[in-house]
Amino acid sequence: MIDYIKGGIAELTPAMVVVDCNGLGYGVNISLNTYSAIQGKSSCKLYIYEAIREDAYILYGFADKQERELFLLLISVSGIGGNTARMILSALSPAELCNVISSENAGLLKTVKGIGLKTAQRVIIDLKDKIKTTSGASAISGGMLAMNAEVNDEAVAALTMLGFAPAPSQKVVALILQEEPNAPVEKVIKLALKRL
């Protein structure tokens, strides 16, 4: 798995960048936010998402990890693929997208090319609980990484089955994952049982 690519910028368009990494040119699809962040620079570091399909091997690049986490959340929504997620991230900055989702502004989200009202509503419903905004700055589930969302969901489900209320379970699990982001689900549950 490629986590990031760092190198010189060989070619740059608003939709794609070719990063020269030791003589090997990687064609990376980017959003307008990332384009703005790397425009005018001679080199860059892009956080990568690899989309490997039967007929294609596509790289999506992001100027920061937060934008990549939002991209991963967006493509987890049914009906949203890589290009649509990139289109959303081109139309809205990560902070704006977090605000649109948390304020349930489907009208603004459907102004993005290729997004209808039903898709906009699905994005909001699916991601509202995963995205929280704090004092204008956006944080994903209290700083939780997208890959921790699965551990979070499993731990909360297990604690709920054990008879604990979902709301306090969610709070305790989120705190534990902030302290130990790489903790496996078993450890999270054990720590949560001590605190509940």
Rank of each mutant, 00 (worst) to 15 (best):
A158L: 08
E150W: 04
T160C: 02
A167N: 11
L162R: 01
N148K: 15
G142W: 05
N152R: 11
A167W: 06
F164I: 10
M144L: 09
N148D: 03
S141P: 05
A155C: 08
A174G: 04
A149M: 09
D153S: 04
A157Q: 05
V156T: 07
G142A: 13
G142D: 11
G163F: 04
I176S: 13
A165F: 09
N148P: 05
A155T: 02
I176L: 13
A157M: 07
M144P: 05
S169K: 09
A174E: 05
P168Y: 05
G163P: 03
T160P: 06
A139S: 06
G142K: 11
G142E: 00
L145D: 10
G163C: 13
E154P: 04
A157R: 03
A165S: 06
A155G: 01
I140T: 00
S141G: 13
A158K: 08
A146F: 04
G143I: 12
V151E: 00
A155I: 04
L175W: 08
A165P: 12
A158C: 03
A146Q: 02
P168D: 07
M147L: 11
A158D: 02
A149E: 08
A157W: 01
A174D: 02
N152K: 11
Q170E: 07
Q170S: 12
P168V: 15
A155Y: 00
